[in-house]
Design a protein around this nucleic acid. Structure first.
Length: 432
RNA sequence: GCGGCCAUAGCUCAACUGGUUAGAGCGCUGGACUGUGACUCCAGAGGUUGCCGGUUCGACCCCGGUUGGCCGCCCCA
């Protein structure tokens, strides 16, 4: 096709036929997170660049080379948000939320932006749904968040998703582990790949999840974070595991799982799907605790824990699952002769005002072509309106899926359609 | 950012070693059936073969560049 204008690389249009899946996922998130007491927030897509540098970390790939950053006309450096936790924390501080309530639960959904190499399930404008809980340092808060994600994924009908769990310690115990790890890695430096040499400078923890077999061998014999946890951190981690078990949530402890953002403390987790459609993009959700983030951004010393799920990847999985989403018309009104067009048009509007989903072809056309449109629309009933119906005031509801036509008076259509619907229409979210 | 594969109709794909008007299925539109969809049959519309340049008498095919997509690395959701 001729390439005149097209969407920016890595940014996609979502059209009817696919958008229904997105609406289903977002609707489920709203309904489910609401049950857990999380209120929705919307923050700007553009933030001061410094926000991400100070929270996500200057040395991370996200900030170092993946942000869409530019100067506005006043010379301010702005960036399209690459993730949602930092903007939420900024808003939490800016509106002095802690002074109004000691425990705050928020969720958000929307686009994020990272300038990265394109792959399946990985785009430059991608979508996340995430949540943040501020004010509780209790293990129960960590588990509440993980439980919520687990429920979310389960209700989407997704199978084969594993929860990986780890603890990175806090400012008391992490330095000792960090030092020990660097010391160990230095001693084995000649066995590590060149990437890992670079990682040792920037973020030694990342060596732990290097995919290179030799590096993995080195890492597996190195110091284990969990053995370095101080007493409070260890107690916290143990309690998290006890509570997960009490909620019957399956997990595996993975002491070599680290996350890409600098702000995590103590609990970190990832939900990993094993479906071939995702390729290497198998992480569908992740999160953890970040007790120092709010303070480091100039706010109060308030603990927090949260997560984010990649909607693009969830939608990819749902497409594979062959499930159908979205509502179809209750009724299609077809016109038998041009003289009935105006009456049919008015009738369609009246029925819509009465709450029915009604399809009608404003162009008219042959009855046959209108029947074809009705069939394709997935309408439950078709009503043919012609001179016969207009004069008698009586019509028939043809059942498109098969069965005898149902006689109906023209002024009693809405009630009859509802009476013959197999089941009450599902609410917007389809949540059961 | 590095390495490899790919690009033909709206979609999935054909087109002999470079040879003349680039085909099919699905989808779309109309008809067979002048008031009844899906099945069947018939017809029609739809392409600068991603784009730019080169080699050649001649390029969908060969070469270079470019854009876009896919896979691996990196990283992440």
């Amino acid at each position: 096709m001729s390439q005149t204008l097209s969407a920016v690389k890595g940014m996609n249009d979502l059209l009817p036929g696919e958008i229904e899946i997105w609406q289903h996922v977002e609707g489920l998130a709203r309904e489910l997170f609401g049950r857990y007491g999380y209120g929705e927030i919307r923050t700007p897509m553009l933030e001061d660049t410094a926000l991400f540098v100070r929270s996500v970390g200057e040395e991370t790939d996200i900030v170092g080379k993946e942000m869409y950053t530019f100067d506005d006309k006043a010379g301010r450096s702005l960036s399209l948000r690459p993730e949602g936790t930092a903007p939420a924390a900024r808003a939490y501080i800016e509106h002095s939320i802690l002074n109004q309530e000691p425990l705050t639960r928020w969720f958000y959904t929307g686009p994020m932006f990272r300038y990265e190499r394109m792959k399946t399930g990985r785009y430059r404008q991608f979508y996340q749904v995430g949540a943040e809980a501020y004010g509780s340092k209790e293990p129960a808060q960590d588990v509440e968040v993980m439980d919520m994600v687990a429920q979310f994924l389960q209700k989407l009908g997704l199978q084969d998703i594993a929860l990986n769990l780890n603890s990175l310690g806090d400012e008391t115990c992490r330095p000792a582990y960090h030092a020990k790890l660097v010391e160990y890695l230095q001693a084995h430096i000649e066995e590590l790949c060149t990437d890992c040499h670079r990682r040792m400078e920037k973020n030694p923890l990342r060596v732990l999840d290097c995919k290179n077999p030799t590096c993995q061998a080195v890492a597996s014999k190195g110091p284990n974070v969990l053995e370095f946890l101080c007493e409070p951190c260890k107690a916290h981690f143990d309690d998290v595991q006890r509570k997960l078990t009490a909620l019957d949530i399956k997990y595996v402890v993975n002491p070599r799982m680290v996350r890409g953002l600098d702000y995590y403390t103590r609990t970190v987790f990832e939900f990993i799907a094993s479906h071939p459609a995702l390729g290497t993009a198998s992480t569908v959700g992740g999160g953890g605790r970040y007790d120092k983030l709010v303070k480091s951004l100039g706010g109060p010393d308030v603990p927090a824990v949260g997560f984010a799920c990649g909607l693009d990847r969830l939608v990819l999985l749902l497409k594979e699952s062959q499930q159908k989403f979205g509502a179809t018309p209750d009724l299609f009104i077809a016109v038998a002769d041009a003289g009935s067009h105006d009456v049919a048009f008015t009738l369609a509007s009246r029925l819509r005002r009465e709450g029915l989903r009604v399809d009608f072809d404003t162009r008219g056309g042959s009855l046959k072509s209108q029947m074809k449109r009705s069939d394709k629309s997935g309408a439950r009933f078709t009503l043919v309106l012609g001179e016969l119906e207009r004069t008698s005031g009586q019509a028939k509801l043809k059942q498109m899926a098969g069965g005898e036509p149902i006689p109906v008076a023209l002024d009693d259509i809405a009630r009859t359609v509802r009476a013959h619907s197999a089941a009450p229409r599902a609410d917007a979210t389809g949540v059961s």
